[in-house]
């Protein structure tokens, strides 16, 4: 991504918007997928709509990915909540370690977490976002990020340990 591409899209060049869409879509899919699960495509679509509608508000083109990520996380949590597929963190029937090794069960573990906890996992573990920044993005105190991450990781650990 070049800043020139973002500026061209901000000026209303729809070919630049098309190129930006092609670049952002896979990235947003990686953010929204683990948070919104089955509603992931809806979340990516809504995130892209919000991103393009507010593209002119982005003052520093270099900050595109971080800015888009914040929008995507919020949209993914909203859509996951809307579709009501989240359940409390019940650990009954967790997959065995062998299932984990087969890499088919991370989804099972995610399904047992509320969307806000999945968002913390994505930001901290997948994206490496610092705690304070993750808290700002999710509009919660930094202590909340810490406790959600602790609980989410504990769930993973229990899943791995069987």
């Amino acid at each position: 991504m070049t800043p020139a591409l973002v500026r061209a899209a901000q000026r209303g060049d729809t070919m630049a918007m098309n190129d930006l869409l092609a670049e952002l879509t896979p990235y947003l899919g990686r953010i929204c997928g683990p948070i919104a699960l089955d509603s992931g495509p809806d979340a990516v679509q809504e995130a892209l709509i919000a991103i393009f509608r507010h593209l002119r508000d982005l003052r520093e083109p270099e900050a595109l990915h971080g800015w888009a990520r914040a929008i995507a996380v919020r949209e993914a949590v909203r859509i996951a909540r809307r579709d009501g597929r989240s359940s409390p963190a019940e650990l009954d029937g967790l997959p065995s370690p062998r299932d984990v090794e087969r890499a088919v069960d991370i989804r099972d573990v995610l399904e047992r977490l509320p969307p806000e906890h999945r968002a913390v996992l994505v930001l901290r573990d997948l994206e490496g976002v610092p705690e304070e920044a993750a808290a700002r993005m999710l509009r919660v105190p930094s202590g909340t990020v810490k406790s959600r991450l602790h609980r989410a990781r504990a769930n993973f650990r229990r899943a791995w340990q069987g």
Binding site: T14, M17, N18, L21, T25, P26, L28, G29, R30, C32, G33, P34, A36, L37, G40, P41, A43, V44, Q45, L48, I49, F52, R53, L55, V100, A103, I106, R107, L110, V122, L126
Partner: peptide, 22 residues
């Protein structure tokens, strides 16, 4: 271990792009 990834089909992509065009 692989994380779930959301895929966006071309029709959904078109809806998103068109939404930005008054």
């Amino acid at each position: 271990m692989s994380w779930p990834v959301a895929d966006l089909d071309p029709v959904r992509r078109l809806r998103a792009l068109a939404a930005a065009i008054p």
